[in-house]
Nucleic acid binder design. Structure first.
Lengths: 165, 165
DNA sequence: CCGTTTTGATTGAACCTTCAACCGATACCC
DNA sequence: GGGTATCGGTTGAAGGTTCAATCAAAACGG
């Protein structure tokens, strides 16, 4: 009747700590960016991805794929980023249905201004509190879990610092 | 001028994988609960906390503290849970300003119905994909990060299975 | 004891995400 | 080539979260 494989007490403790940490870390990052740079974390990530793309621009669906976001969400987000003057929509030359989102100079500047505070927050909240071994294991864990959830997802090598190549 | 301690390439990889995993896992859990039980993950957690409280009821602010949520969020959430008939608001006997949120029998039943699917999802997405060592380290990491973000937060021992004591 | 401050909680507006419906453009296929 | 299916993207509504404002009850302070 009940063939559910319940969590052991030890697993429950880990899960609870993990979920709580997830929420707290997310809130922390989001609040910092909102406070210091006036953008939510998800929008920051969109700007990061764009800044690293060739021509600092990407098709909407590619951007959605890289960010793991729905088309709808991206459409709303880009609309808002466009209002802010950080992103521009252009026609796609090869497919008349398509849109291309391009980072503006203003957007790049906003990203460059936001990056130091963001990276500092990441470092203080996460890396400064972990041993190198823990960091390594965290990487393995993340990849393993991601593999299970979304096998097709590529994890592009990424420069957090937008001034780097 | 630039005294930001940027992330090393290895750290960037870990961070990117971690953040991506975070988002994917959150979406996955949320979708499963929404689909199978018609509630978002945050509401499920509220029901869990309530179900474990003495009398299956808690002051709003205690509930907010245990869940790491703002009072405002909790107020809105409980309003909606009340509409669903899963939670009831009562007056606080010792403080006329206060409210007490109490899990109804219907709410408890909804939680009991939702738990197996939720736990199965957690197990398949997380624990089944990790070695026992990785699970142990994940617990350490979570506690360490949480310690830095929110030192006062208590992590109550928790039974995922609402039928257990 | 009365005025002030703080606390517990709610409310409404603004914002973000999701969901479903939709539309034009492209690809398929016979 | 023309009908149909699919794709890329947008839109509007509904739901959830945040922020600031609000209010009553309680605690404080002279």
């Amino acid at each position: 009747m009940d063939d559910t494989r319940w969590l052991t007490p030890a697993e429950q403790d880990v899960w609870r700590a993990f979920v709580t940490m997830l929420g707290a870390l997310g809130d922390h990052m989001d609040k910092q960016l909102q406070r210091d740079s006036g953008m939510p974390y998800t929008y920051y990530e969109i700007l990061v991805v764009l800044s690293q793309a060739p021509g600092r621009s990407l098709r909407m669906s590619e951007l959605a794929g890289l960010r793991g976001a729905s088309r709808s969400r991206l459409s709303h987000a880009v609309a808002r980023l466009e209002e802010a003057g950080w992103v521009e929509r252009r026609e796609c030359p090869t497919d008349k249905r398509g849109s291309v989102a391009a980072l503006t100079d203003k957007g790049f500047a906003a990203l460059a201004a936001a990056a130091p505070g963001h990276v500092t927050t990441v470092r203080e909240a996460l890396f400064d509190r972990l041993t190198p071994e823990q960091v390594a294991v965290l990487g393995q864990i993340s990849v393993a879990v991601l593999e299970g959830l979304d096998p097709d997802r590529t994890l592009p090598g990424c420069r957090e610092h937008p001034d780097e190549p």
